[in-house]
Design a protein around this nucleic acid. Structure first.
Lengths: 101, 101
DNA sequence: AAAAAGCACTTTGTAATACAAAGTTAATAA
DNA sequence: TTATTAACTTTGTATTACAAAGTGCTTTTT
């Protein structure tokens, strides 16, 4: 058997269901704010915050704080490296899928 | 925003990189033995054993112990429910990918 | 025949991760 | 003024991942 390790290239950051969800939402929406993400993914705010932190610290998303009127709004968006990393990850998954079906 | 939660249907069992790897290997090979899996996925034997246990206990793979000569051989294969569960999981991933690209 | 090595684990221990819940601060609505 | 919302941080617990060592049996090497 001389197959290659099929998992070595999968990005550990995207192993988490929640972070995968965040990325997939942010890939199709320019900007999404904290609360919308929270309701969309059905997670507690503390939990979401920590996952967002992981994504931010790895440079895959960026935060954009602004005011809507005098109220603060926190919106998240993917960065260029985040887009690349996520697409790369999906490519690996895709090739696994293609192998199988 | 009335999008659906994109992650609720993802199978928790397949969140692990290693279990994902095991499944993807077993989907394209009738049977793979312990040692081949271990070398293919580059994991320690203890770690592999526990992940295989999780997959077996959830009914997604089955074990086939036999003798090659007088030496024991432990081979793993996907079960029918395992095949279905994995394909379902991949379908969700696929739809996420399709949404994005 | 004795020693070393391989297979397929189990056990043990540690470190990382996930998560909920409660607390926080500042603003806004009732 | 009280209550509520947003977006967190902190705290604590439970789960998970993983490596490493130990086990019992077999095979290979010397």
């Amino acid at each position: 058997m001389v197959l290659k390790n099929p998992i070595e290239k999968l990005n550990k950051i995207f192993e988490s269901r929640i972070r995968l969800g965040v990325m997939s939402v942010l890939m199709v929406n320019e900007e999404v704010n904290f609360n919308d993400l929270k309701q969309l993914l059905e997670v507690t705010d503390g939990n979401l915050a920590t996952h967002l932190n992981v994504l931010e610290e790895s440079g895959y998303i960026k935060v954009h704080k602004s005011f809507i009127g005098r109220k603060t709004n926190t919106a998240y968006a993917v960065t260029r490296p985040g887009e690349k990393a996520f697409k790369d990850h999906l490519k690996i998954l895709e090739s696994m899928i293609r192998n199988i079906s």
